[in-house]
Design a protein around this nucleic acid. Structure first.
Lengths: 225, 225
DNA sequence: TTTCCGATGAAGAAGATACTGATTGTAGAT
DNA sequence: ATCTACAATCAGTATCTTCTTCATCGGAAA
């Protein structure tokens, strides 16, 4: 049986959710704030966490941030209607879904089911991370790692790499790169690209090999699976 | 950067999808109903459309039907749980995937990535490779292979081969080759071509036979299917 | 056989890219 | 508003690849 952790400071809400969750065939436990949630995650294994944002002691976002360091558990956030929060911030944390209060427990459970049922499927697709041997690009997080080690890229370097892997195995002229990455209104020097390619290659370590030079043309990200 | 059109009558849903799409490295635009979606498709180029089925003015299926008349764009349909629809009908329209509400934005993006990657892969493999027996030219990648083995060409060699296969079975004088490949402002020696033809032939192995010498004239790429 | 034209190999010239270092531009902190 | 830190750009030089030319060889046409 799947186990859900419900985190909310209002006892009433916790109770409603727990009852409906158990009714839907889940085991459920409760925590009243972010702090105790973290403690419970350390001690138990949960399949999913339903977490309110506004809470005493430790807010939902901070709690999720801590929890994700410990275990990779899907999270559904609860937020009051009109509550100000930064969605992007949430996405970065790998939050799976939002539900706005007031919600119907039916709707909430539908989302719980959706997240849990498809957790496997989306893990299979993992498409937010692209791998090229030891080179991994996490598109959602805008980060890359080389042989498992995180490497920091400047914005342009990342844009360049991202563009190239999206057009892998295609010859890319300098003009096309400038137009698509820098924008049609950039009238700078072609050689600017060379510099960024150089810098990018330095960041990629052994995987610099994927970026091949096409003399008289431009560059290409070459990778055949 | 790939551009996605999000069509749904609920602003909240559009917003969540758009933010996650942008977060995942896509550009995104929104339309509130089928009608305006059609208008936007006419004006812009999208790489993918995420479309709700139930909408005022014009439902998702009808909109897709119209859009497919204009442009061939992959589509992911959104449908409410239990909503009645005929999946086969959808696939006939060329719909690439279904996602049932409520969905997690993470899952939706995984499917978007899957659909786009599929498209890219099939586009790469279909139209961009020309075959002449064991000689294959991949125009997008600017590569050739001989009997399945990759062979590196210098820029001029590639340009020459590319030009010749685009004018196969046509007699090409040295003057014409110089003018079209080197440019009208090249005033070098005719014999330069001979050297490049020689080098190119060496690269082509058994398929050097396709390049025939026309004594007193120039060369010709000879290949009848 | 003679003549002509193309094929070939080698070497210097030309051209393109890689890289260094300096300058300019920009966002965030104080 | 100013400062600071870092990124983006550009100019100049070094380095490497490719192109072109030339001299010679070989083979087909007359």
């Amino acid at each position: 049986m799947k186990k859900i952790l419900i985190v909310d400071d209002e006892e009433k809400i916790r109770e409603v959710i727990r009852e409906y969750a158990e009714f839907s065939g889940y085991a459920a436990e409760e925590a009243a704030d972010g702090m105790s949630a973290i403690g419970m995650v350390k001690l138990n294994d949960y399949d999913l966490i339903i977490m309110d944002i506004m809470m005493p002691k430790l807010d939902g976002f901070s709690a999720v941030k801590e929890i994700q360091k410990i275990k990779n558990i899907p999270v559904i956030m609860l937020s009051a209607r009109g509550e100000e929060y930064d969605k992007l911030f949430g996405f970065e944390l790998g939050i799976d879904d939002y539900v706005v209060k007031p919600f119907s427990p039916k709707e909430l459970m539908a989302r719980v089911n959706a997240v849990l049922n498809r957790r496997d499927a989306s893990e299979r697709n993992v498409s937010n991370i692209q791998k090229f041997e030891g080179l991994e690009i996490n598109i959602a997080a805008r980060t890359i790692s080389v042989d498992g080690k995180r490497v920091e890229l400047t914005p342009k370097e990342y844009d360049l790499l991202f563009y190239m892997i999206q057009h892998k195995n295609i010859a890319l002229s300098r003009e096309k790169l400038l137009e698509d990455i820098w924008g049609y209104d950039f009238f700078g020097d072609d050689r600017t690209i060379d510099t960024h390619v150089k810098n990018l290659r330095n960041c990629l370590g052994p995987y610099r090999k994927f970026i091949v030079t096409l003399r008289g043309v431009g560059y290409k990200f070459e990778y055949e699976e």
